[in-house]
Design a protein around this nucleic acid. Structure first.
Lengths: 216, 216
DNA sequence: GTTACAAGTCACCGTCCGTTGACTTATAAC
DNA sequence: GTTATAAGTCAACGGACGGTGACTTGTAAC
């Protein structure tokens, strides 16, 4: 027994493990209570470590949080959920699928919600970097749709900017507010379906209008 | 001179005036620095009064802020900007005008921006009340558009929920982030116009599609 | 002017929180 | 085992902030 424990034993003091525990706790707290709850004492308690270690290993509370954000590129994570193989084309139904996927993912990811709120709440170079990376990824997608919309009356990027923004706002709004938006209750199955259907409709309108105006 | 001063003199100690100063300072600070800067000391300093008065007159810091929010119904203010006389009808161009008006107003009202961010950041019964009132107001507008969309394939409320939400998010995003959204820079004249044009297009699509599907 | 009271001032308390210095203890090399 | 060093503990500092008690001063009624 004792020898077995000795063979498989893990050292009680392990800097790397402790660092990971702290980083992991940042994620857990961010998910549960939001960025406002990212206090040194709180994080340390969650990791069952002394908060001093935050300063030993990451220099400051901000250093720890930065390290966490660097290790976890959420935007990439979101987008990647929507595709397995590289796309060669971007037809309307694929765009609708991606947008619905964004809605559903964000809806179920309190961590992402908090990060988006954070992004709206203060200037943070690190969050900006992450946003830039998302933009770079999005650009690759739009390259695929360009052929549908080049020379048409439709600005597909602008329409998507509107729809993505709408999705973000609606989900953040629904977290604390039970109120409807223009009579739509985004938390109800019915409301969600109404929104989804309208998103779908708008995307299809884009493709139709593009075809019409392109052929002029 | 002295007698004139006596005639027109204002008392140095005036509870109501002090209360108003405090309320006004809440608005000024909210506008300049956001709801996070609503600290007792900060507000009192801005009003050039002692912070004790906040507690004397409003019971607590929260009491002061609540009093401020009750006195200033922002949502109503926003919406009312868009109309002088009661509307009898809600054609597409009027809807576009209202949405563009919302964008422009919010863009130039840091106070509103902060309140929207606040609404996304925490549960607050008072903010909920204000939102409810906005919904009631919006409902009156939608009643006017109902005749265009009843029995059609278009859910006009859902489309407007998307567009209004998009406007809110985009403006909040632009406050601290220089990044584009789907390649659109909402802070530039060009980006704004692209967004405006797409909003306009979507609204017109709604009316067209409604006409088509209604006549089936 | 005197006086009573409200308006306003000031120093202070308790709490939360980021951060730190000085300490103890586990680990690994010898 | 001895020892050096890194890992981890603990208590405390200092600043920010909401809130309060006791004081001073302006105002208005007499």
């Amino acid at each position: 027994m004792k020898t077995e424990q000795r063979n498989t034993r893990v050292p009680k003091r392990d800097k790397l493990k402790s660092m990971e525990k702290l980083l992991h706790s940042v994620g857990a707290i961010l998910q549960k209570d939001g960025y406002k709850a990212l206090k040194a004492q709180h994080i340390a308690a969650h990791a069952k470590l002394d908060k001093k270690l935050i300063y030993n290993y990451f220099g400051s509370l901000g250093g720890l949080i930065d390290a966490y954000l660097k290790k976890n590129d959420f935007w990439k994570r979101t987008e990647l959920l929507t595709e397995q193989a590289p796309l060669a084309d971007l037809p309307a139904n694929k765009v609708v699928e991606i947008l619905k996927g964004q809605f559903t993912f964000l809806e179920h990811s309190p961590e992402m919600q908090h990060i988006i709120l954070w992004e709206l709440s203060e200037k943070n170079p690190l969050l900006q970097e992450i946003l830039d990376e998302r933009e770079r990824f999005g650009e690759q997608l739009f390259k695929l749709s360009d052929k549908y919309f080049r020379g048409s009356a439709v600005n597909f990027r602008a329409v998507n900017a509107l729809l993505v923004s709408a999705i973000y706002y609606i989900i953040l709004h629904s977290r604390y507010n039970t109120n409807t938006i223009c009579g739509i209750d985004a938390t109800s199955k019915k409301g969600r379906e109404q929104l989804f259907k309208s998103i779908e409709q708008i995307i299809y309108w884009c493709y139709q209008e593009a075809e019409r105006t392109r052929n002029q």
